[in-house]
Simulated assay, not measured.
Amino acid sequence: MLEVAGVPVLSDNYVWLIHDAASGETVVVDPAVDAPVLSAAALRGWRITQIWNTHWHDDHVAGNIGIKAATDCRITAPDDRDHPIPAIDRIVGEGDRVGIGAFEGQVLSTPGHTTVHLTYHLPGAAILFPGDTLFALGCGRLFEGTADQMFANMQRLATLPPETVVYCAHEYTQDNARFAVTVEPDNVKLAERMLAIDAAREAGRPTVPFSIAAERDTNPFLRASNVAEFTSRRAAKDVFRG
């Protein structure tokens, strides 16, 4: 199986290293910076061969050039002509394939947070890298896209196998949980999850990754029944200060 390691950077970002021992390959997902990522890989003895970018925001691509210069890795990213991603070797979109070792990944188009945004799904390893589309108990803000697009993303990701492990790009879970309980105050599974989240953060532990099964039970955006309900929840979260 693949091994995934998180590199916490900036104030709340996670950069993910995906390592395949059989081939010796290592993929970096959304490198916000270069030096800590290179150090984390070197510490493990992992050779970085690829970068996968989900979208153009600087806290997802600023490490591209430095990592490529140090490793000669291949960069795969979406084609965002309004916001070109640096040092791309291969442009991908909906329906394309990526791979690490013997594992094949599917490229999903998940716009909403930005006009062009990708999610990488490796079904053989049951892992998902949604960038800023899906968070634990949350979803990305609609900076460039629409509520209809993001609602469609939530509906689509909810159909993935429940055991799918999700590696999102930010540690937003505690704040998301505080909002989620205002939407579903009687959700017992949500209350239980919030206690576990608070305990993890108190102990300095990450709350990512998480499962699609957990999101189906507790994420108010994934659980929205229609676009209007989703839109109302997204607007409320945008101004939430709980």
Rank of each mutant, 00 (worst) to 15 (best):
residue 143 F to N: 15
residue 114 T to L: 00
residue 108 L to I: 10
residue 115 T to S: 15
residue 109 S to R: 03
residue 111 P to F: 02
residue 112 G to N: 03
residue 144 E to Q: 15
residue 144 E to H: 10
residue 98 V to Y: 03
residue 121 H to M: 08
residue 139 C to F: 08
residue 118 L to V: 06
residue 150 M to E: 14
residue 117 H to T: 13
residue 92 V to A: 12
residue 120 Y to H: 11
residue 152 A to P: 09
residue 116 V to Q: 01
residue 127 I to A: 04
residue 134 L to N: 05
residue 104 E to H: 04
residue 148 D to E: 15
residue 113 H to F: 13
residue 134 L to S: 03
residue 122 L to Q: 09
residue 123 P to T: 00
residue 116 V to S: 07
residue 105 G to H: 00
residue 132 D to R: 01
residue 138 G to T: 10
residue 128 L to P: 12
residue 145 G to D: 04
residue 102 A to S: 09
residue 102 A to V: 07
residue 99 G to L: 00
residue 116 V to R: 10
residue 143 F to E: 14
residue 145 G to A: 06
residue 96 D to Y: 01
residue 92 V to K: 08
residue 120 Y to P: 05
residue 121 H to R: 11
residue 94 E to T: 05
residue 123 P to I: 06
residue 150 M to L: 14
residue 113 H to T: 15
residue 150 M to D: 13
residue 98 V to P: 07
residue 112 G to F: 01
residue 118 L to S: 10
residue 123 P to E: 07
residue 142 L to I: 10
residue 94 E to N: 06
residue 99 G to E: 13
residue 140 G to S: 03
residue 136 A to M: 13
residue 142 L to G: 00
residue 141 R to E: 11
residue 118 L to Y: 08
residue 152 A to M: 09
residue 105 G to K: 00
residue 138 G to S: 08
residue 100 I to A: 02
residue 117 H to W: 01
residue 118 L to R: 12
residue 109 S to K: 01
residue 148 D to K: 14
residue 93 G to Q: 00
residue 131 G to D: 04
residue 117 H to P: 05
residue 142 L to V: 11
residue 135 F to I: 06
residue 137 L to M: 10
residue 104 E to T: 13
residue 129 F to S: 07
residue 147 A to D: 15
residue 135 F to D: 05
residue 140 G to V: 05
residue 117 H to G: 08
residue 148 D to Y: 13
residue 111 P to G: 02
residue 95 G to V: 09
residue 93 G to Y: 04
residue 109 S to F: 05
residue 108 L to K: 05
residue 121 H to Y: 15
residue 136 A to C: 14
residue 99 G to D: 07
residue 142 L to F: 05
residue 93 G to W: 10
residue 131 G to L: 06
residue 141 R to A: 14
residue 127 I to S: 08
residue 142 L to H: 07
residue 134 L to V: 02
residue 134 L to M: 08
residue 114 T to I: 11
residue 127 I to N: 11
residue 145 G to N: 00
residue 94 E to D: 00
residue 128 L to N: 09
residue 130 P to F: 05
residue 144 E to G: 15
residue 129 F to K: 05
residue 102 A to T: 11
residue 115 T to V: 11
residue 125 A to V: 04
residue 127 I to Q: 04
residue 146 T to K: 11
residue 137 L to Q: 11
residue 121 H to P: 03
residue 138 G to H: 09
residue 118 L to T: 09
residue 133 T to P: 06
residue 123 P to K: 13
residue 140 G to Q: 02
residue 96 D to L: 00
residue 139 C to S: 13
residue 99 G to S: 14
residue 139 C to M: 05
residue 93 G to A: 10
residue 130 P to W: 05
residue 123 P to F: 03
residue 126 A to G: 02
residue 97 R to N: 06
residue 147 A to P: 12
residue 152 A to Y: 05
residue 132 D to W: 13
residue 109 S to Y: 02
residue 129 F to D: 13
residue 125 A to N: 06
residue 116 V to W: 01
residue 131 G to N: 06
residue 93 G to E: 09
residue 105 G to L: 00
residue 133 T to M: 07
residue 149 Q to F: 07
residue 151 F to D: 03
residue 112 G to A: 11
residue 115 T to G: 15
residue 133 T to Q: 07
residue 106 Q to S: 14
residue 101 G to S: 02
residue 151 F to E: 00
residue 121 H to K: 08
residue 115 T to K: 15
residue 104 E to Y: 09
residue 139 C to R: 12
residue 117 H to D: 13
residue 134 L to P: 01
